[in-house]
């Protein structure tokens, strides 16, 4: 039995690796194959044709695209991410510190939003059709259908402008003490939590409702179990797999949200680095950040898949 699960998981990992190569190809194609010669861009309009040709040779731009792709992919696998065009530093150096910051932001957001959305999602499913449920639904649909930056601007308007509790759009690199740390993290975390929770609540609610609709839960109800017992004892344990799956899937919304949030709050993370790199057309840096994002996305999907397989025997075919 366990070897079968292991086999399935290995298969998933294989699919993920294939996807990663296709994604790498798409990223490479978008940045290098399309018109616009990198050597020309780097040297500017006034460069002599000889200088451009020399740089092209030095950067291996004269080689066929497929060779360059192989070379680039090989570099990624062995940890050689290339050098940044903009300031000629190793991309790995530029990213490492920023990555820690982004992961911190993601971790704090996860810590906040998972318990919150579990609670709201499960209770909304428990009292399905009630006023409370409708309120939660309206809230989630609203948050999902407005852009992330609007959630951020609203948070700033409410907490910084009208209430005056938190600083508006600044991020200090020097943080002293816990209170200041909380103040600095509060706004980005609030915004991101809103965005991610809305998805999570919806999916959790759907997962619990799916289980409530099964015959064995109906049986428990017919035996005279209270609504609370019916959900807590009969429905929830069976919904844990789908819920964990939903959690992992909705955490992938972090990746889109974090780009907006880091930009708006000037948070020194990978996404901010990438947006700045787009402005300077610093291609090696952009490619590496992009692959980093795709990798985390695929990992989250993989976790969701594995949880689903592990928790649902019917998927193990």
């Amino acid at each position: 039995m366990n070897s079968m699960i292991a086999g399935l998981i290995i298969r998933r990992v294989g699919i993920m690796l294939v996807s990663l190569v296709i994604v790498a190809f798409a990223v490479f194609a978008a940045t290098e194959l399309l018109p616009g010669d990198v050597a020309q861009i780097l040297l500017g309009q006034s460069a002599t044709p000889e200088a451009v040709a020399g740089l092209r040779k030095a950067m291996h731009l004269d080689q066929p695209a497929i060779l360059r792709f192989g070379h680039w992919l090989g570099g990624l696998v062995t940890g050689d991410f290339g050098r940044s065009y903009a300031n000629n530093r190793d991309v790995a150096d530029l990213i490492s510190g920023r990555l820690v910051n982004s992961l911190k932001l993601g971790a704090v957001t996860t810590l906040f939003s998972v318990p919150l959305s579990l609670f709201l999602g499960v209770t909304a499913a428990m009292f399905r059709g009630s006023f409370y449920d409708r309120l939660v639904s309206v809230f989630t649909v609203t948050v999902i259908s407005v852009p992330e930056f609007m959630v951020a601007t609203l948070a700033v308007l409410i907490f910084a402008v009208y209430l005056g509790w938190l600083p508006a759009l600044s991020f200090a690199n020097e943080v002293h003490g816990l209170g200041e740390l909380l103040r600095v993290y509060a706004m980005p975390v609030i915004t991101l939590s809103f965005v991610v929770s809305a998805q999570m609540i919806r999916m959790t609610r759907a997962a619990v409702i799916d289980t409530i609709n099964t015959p064995y839960v109906e049986m428990a109800l017919l035996k005279g179990a209270t609504r609370r017992r019916m959900v807590m004892r009969h429905a929830l344990p069976n919904a844990l797999g789908p819920i964990a799956n939903a959690m992992a899937l909705s955490l992938s919304y972090l990746l889109g949200g974090v780009i907006i949030v880091e930009t708006i709050f000037n948070y020194p993370g990978v996404a901010k680095l990438m947006v700045d790199a787009v402005a300077t057309r610093d291609l090696p840096l952009i490619q590496t950040c992009a692959m980093l994002f795709c990798l985390s996305y695929l990992l989250l999907i993989l976790i969701a898949d594995v949880v689903a397989i592990a928790s649902n025997p019917r998927l193990r075919q």
């Binding site: 296709i22 994604v23 798409a26 990746l255 780009i259 992009a290 795709c294 996305y297 999907i301």
Partner: peptide, 8 residues
């Protein structure tokens, strides 16, 4: 292709 986060 779907595995590339859209904003990215």
């Amino acid at each position: 292709l779907n595995a590339i986060p859209s904003l990215m």
